[in-house]
Design a protein around this nucleic acid. Structure first.
Lengths: 236, 236
DNA sequence: GTGCAAAACATCGTATACAATCTTGCCACC
DNA sequence: GGTGGCAAGATTGTATACGATGTTTTGCAC
C-alpha cells in the first residue's frame, strides 16, 4: 500500500486526510505538473492517494473554493482554466492588494525578516541559473513565495490567505497565457523592492511593486484563443 | 425569458444541496440568528434540513473556509467566535481593500449604479427607523450590502468575494464586541461616500471610507474577555 | 464525600453502497 | 446512408454504516 504520495500520512499532523490531498494537488497545480483543464475524477484522485471518493471529493471541493479547480455539476472536477477576463481580474486584485500589504509589511518588518527575504532571493537566483524541469518548478514556487512572505510579514493572516489564493491562481494564468520562457517574475525586481523597503522609501517600493505586477501581466497574451466550444473553433 | 436570469435560477436550484444549506446557515449567522460559539453538530444540521450528514458536513466545511464556522477535529463545528486579534485583522483587511475597491468602482460607476446605491440607502434608513428584531436583522444586512454593492460595481468578482467574506465576518465581530445599540454602520456616512463619488472627489471618498471603517471599529470593545463560563456569569 | 479509572455515550472521520444523471455506442427505422 | 432513440457504461450526488476519538457518567476505592 505504497503510493507516490507516501507523504506524512502517519500521525504527523492532526489535519484531516482531505487537507493533505488538497495540499498535494494544489502544489501539483501551482508547480504546473497538472495542466489547466485536466480532468480530476473523484475516483482517480481517490485511487491515487489510496483513499475513498469521500476524501477525494472533499479535497476537490476545497480547491474549488480557492479557484484552482472548477467542479461542474454531474460532470466532474477539472483543473481551472481561467479565462482572459479572470486573468485580468486576478492581476487587478493583486494591484489592489499588494501595495497595501507592502505598506503593512514595511511597518512591521524586522532585520530578521529582511534576512529571510534575501535568502529567498538567493535561492530563487540559484534556481534560475539551473536547468531542468525540477529547477523550473522550484523557481516558480520560490518566485511566488517572495510575495507570500511579504504577506506573512504584514501580520494579517486573512490578507495572507487572499494572497495565497491570488498567487496560486496567477501561476495558473502564467501557465496558460505566459509567453516568455522566463516564466516567473523578473528576479531583479524582487531585489529592488527589498532594497526600497530597507531604505524606507515606501512610496518607491509600492511603485516598484506595481511595475513588477505590470511586468508579469505584460508577458501574457490574453487574447481569447482557446476552445470557446469546439464548434466555434471550426466555424471560424 | 430563458436568458441569463433563468439560467442562473435553474443552475442555482440545480446546485448541489450542500450549497443551499451553506447559504441558509450563512444568512442565519450574518443576521445574527445564530450566535458566535453556537454548536453546529453535523447530525443536527442534517436533521434540520432533512439531509444526511454528508451534505451537512460539506456545508459546514464550506463555511469554515469562509471563516464563519470553526471546525475542531473530532469535536465538531461551531459558529466562529473571532478573537479580538482576528477582529482587528478583519478591519485591517477592510482598510486595506476598500479604498482600492472604491477607486475601481468610481472609475466604472454608472448613473444607474448610483441610483441603486441610493435606493439601498433609502431602504437602510427606513429599516433604521423601524422597530423589532426583523427590522434590525434586515438593517444589518442592508448595511453590509452597501459595501458589497461597491465591490460588485468594481467589476472584480474575486475582490467581491473577498469583501463578502470580510463583511460577513465583520457582522460576527460586531455581534460579539459591538457596544452601541445602533449596531450597524453610521447610516449618514454611506450617503456621504456616495456624494463624494458623485462629485468625483475620489480622495475624499477614500478618506470617508477609511473614517467610516474606523468608526465601526471604534464602537467595538476589543478587550480580551475571558471564557464566559457559568461561574463568572453568576459571580457578577 | 472525594478522586480517579473505566465504561458508556455522543460525535466526528472515513469507507462503502446505492440512486441519479450524463455520455456513449449501437441498432432499428426512415 | 443518415438520424433518432434506447440501452449500457461511466461518473457524480447522496445516504448509510462502521470505526476512531472525545466527553460524560458511573462505580469503586480510599
Amino acid at each position: 500500500m505504497k503510493s507516490a504520495a507516501k507523504a506524512q500520512q502517519a500521525e504527523d499532523s492532526a489535519e484531516t486526510g482531505a487537507q493533505q490531498i488538497r495540499d498535494a494537488i494544489r502544489e501539483a497545480i501551482v508547480e504546473r505538473r497538472l495542466s489547466p483543464g485536466t480532468k480530476l475524477s473523484e475516483s482517480d484522485v481517490g485511487n491515487l492517494f489510496n483513499v475513498s471518493r469521500t476524501l477525494a471529493r472533499a479535497a476537490l471541493q476545497a480547491l474549488s473554493y480557492e479557484g484552482l479547480v472548477s467542479v461542474e455539476k454531474n460532470r466532474g472536477a477539472f483543473v481551472a482554466y481561467p479565462s482572459p477576463d479572470e486573468a485580468r481580474q486576478i492581476f487587478s486584485a493583486r494591484r489592489l492588494v499588494e501595495p497595501g500589504i507592502l505598506r503593512e509589511a514595511a511597518a512591521r518588518i524586522t532585520p530578521d525578516d529582511i534576512t529571510h527575504l534575501r535568502q529567498l532571493l538567493l535561492e530563487e537566483g540559484r534556481l534560475m541559473s539551473e536547468r531542468g524541469q525540477t529547477a523550473r518548478r522550484a523557481e516558480i514556487k520560490a518566485s511566488g513565495d517572495f510575495h507570500l512572505m511579504l504577506a506573512a510579514i504584514s501580520g494579517n493572516s486573512i490578507v495572507q490567505r487572499f494572497m495565497e489564493e491570488l498567487v496560486a491562481r496567477s501561476s495558473l494564468v502564467i501557465a496558460l497565457y505566459g509567453q516568455s520562457t522566463a516564466s516567473s517574475c523578473g528576479h531583479s525586481e524582487h531585489g529592488d523592492i527589498i532594497s526600497a523597503i530597507e531604505a524606507e522609501e515606501l512610496d518607491r517600493a509600492c511603485q516598484l511593486m506595481l511595475h513588477h505586477i505590470a511586468h508579469i501581466e505584460a508577458d501574457l497574451d490574453l487574447r481569447e484563443r482557446k476552445s470557446l466550444g469546439l464548434k466555434e473553433a471550426f466555424e471560424l
